[in-house]
């Protein structure tokens, strides 16, 4: 069994729409996530994961320059991540197909295997 990180990216505008939902909409949205992650958990394939606030700061290189981030005009930003277990990259992709992140056309799920550095 390998570990994978699913990185969720959205256009910044989507992120804001998400944050400004009514409590009912938010609840409905969370039900979708609960459903998807609940299924992973039942198969013991869920490790964890969190949604992220759209605001943040970015530190740059050796000068450690700090800029407001992560906004770059028109680019996608990371909205959250989930860690799962799967036998293979193919299985991890298959498990990601039902992710609510993909309910919007410009949402993406990037599937990356976690590198074991031993």
């Amino acid at each position: 069994m390998k570990d994978f990180m699913l990185v969720f990216r959205n256009p910044a505008s989507n992120q804001e729409t998400f944050a400004n939902q009514s409590p009912e909409q938010m609840q409905a949205e969370m039900a979708l996530w609960n459903n998807w992650m609940g299924k992973l958990a039942e198969q013991n394939k869920l490790i964890g994961g969190e949604p992220l606030h759209p605001e943040g700061k970015v530190l740059h290189g050796t000068k450690k320059k700090v800029t407001d981030g992560p906004f770059i005009e028109g680019k996608d930003i990371v909205g959250g991540y989930v860690l799962i277990k799967a036998e293979s990259l193919e299985e991890a992709v298959a498990l990601s197909k039902d992710c609510p992140q993909l309910n919007s056309d410009d949402g993406t799920v990037e599937v990356r295997e976690i590198m074991k550095v031993s």
């Binding site: 969370m30 996530w33 609960n34 992650m37 958990a41 013991n44 869920l46 964890g48 959250g80």
Partner: peptide, 23 residues
Amino acid sequence: EAFVRHLNPLLTSEYTASLTLEE
């Protein structure tokens, strides 16, 4: 044990904590 183990990641993630408790 399996029951609690499977609930654990759901209870610790903000995506699912509140609904998991309720549901």
